[in-house]
Design a protein around this nucleic acid. Sequence first.
DNA 1: CGACACGTTGATATCCCTCAAGGGGAGTGG
DNA 2: CCACTCCCCTTGAGGGATATCAACGTGTCG
Lengths: 235, 235
Amino acid sequence: MLSRIFLTAHPTPRLSDEECAQLEAAIARTVNFDARSIIVRENQPLTNCTLLLAGIAYRYKDTEEGKRQILALHYPGDFVDLHSYPLKRLEHTVGALTAVQMAVVPHDAICRLTETSSRLTELLWKSTLVDAAMNREWLTSVGARAGVARVAHLFCEAYVRLRMIGGTRGWTFDFPLTQLDLGEATGLTSVHANRMLRRLREPGILTFRNGVASIGDWQKLCEIAEFDDNYLFLD
Amino acid sequence: MLSRIFLTAHPTPRLSDEECAQLEAAIARTVNFDARSIIVRENQPLTNCTLLLAGIAYRYKDTEEGKRQILALHYPGDFVDLHSYPLKRLEHTVGALTAVQMAVVPHDAICRLTETSSRLTELLWKSTLVDAAMNREWLTSVGARAGVARVAHLFCEAYVRLRMIGGTRGWTFDFPLTQLDLGEATGLTSVHANRMLRRLREPGILTFRNGVASIGDWQKLCEIAEFDDNYLFLD
DNA sequence: CGACACGTTGATATCCCTCAAGGGGAGTGG
DNA sequence: CCACTCCCCTTGAGGGATATCAACGTGTCG
């Protein structure tokens, strides 16, 4: 039952067994991608969506000056490019951060779902809008918060989201980003991201080494980040 | 026929007469707001969506340090807070930039629409996703582009969107933002936004005075902004 | 062992912010 | 009609945050 994983981060409203079966039936196949490979190229016509089963995926845009902005991180259970169903293409690139396994769901299968179940449609719609809410929170972070807060915020979000899907061990979790990635997600250079990490490490608030993050003082981290999980719509 | 205005910026696919009538029937009433008033407060339970009929609305988040990030601007025809239907609340504030007139569409009316027409549902869904694509483009701008490019980008987007709905006169258009607003939309201070405007004005690329923008060199403006309208999904 | 990617740190440069002052226009009240 | 106020725009000076450039260490993998 691959589709059980969908929305594990959003326990309510719960998918009924029948809805889950419908979703399951929409899955055409699974597919694997290597770490750091491209899953979907921007502006290509699409006929499938992909549900992330294992690994971490990310979305980004490159600018002409050679900078990259990471737009979102995706964990197992995320319907990474569901928005390609109404939009028919993506205006950004989707890549695999680690090796990933994905379930392929053809657009016409989703179309059949939407004709069958308006409740399931609404849940799918909602999941794309929670992604959009995260986009807006990142926009706020990058546009209105200091460097150290942006870095702290990224770790707060990662911790909460990973905990929802059982991806944490106490205050520790795997977070396989390089410091370059960290910079590209927060609008900083890798050098400065490194310095912001030091400012979190030295007072024992957060350590991050070799792709493993460990939170030493959750409350302080949240304060620095101005983190409030209301934008994740976990309720 | 108030609902004719919906998606005027997105001519394809075209709403059928019947779909338009269905949407029209979903409108409960119209309502007006003064300039600079709050339309929807963040995190309040919502039971209505609002379609913007006249004026300019905007969405924003305030940080604890007293900074404000403007997340989006909305023009007539935009379904400003349609995402409140699946989400039931908004994680940001919606305000009126100018005096606005809005059509109120109750959530349960939208629910009936989604049970009736999966095609209309998809169009509504799509419109929320185009908003999300704009959120991501702004994120890229704020995170990865220089100040002058961010300001230029904002004017490029405004011009293209306003032209779609007949809101431009040649290369001139009303754009009733203060320079403080401009800064809050681009992640700059108003002082620096002012200086970026000067850098666009002096070579004759763009003038902006008293809420009226006038483009002198569209191609240069696009180059500076790295503007490409593909993220607006106008096709 | 060599190549390479990543992390760390220092020195310097630049962008953008902060603070401050003054000007102009619109609205208001005398 | 004028004075006053307030908001917004504009400009200058100085400072802080972040970028750039550079060097070196470390671990991994072929």
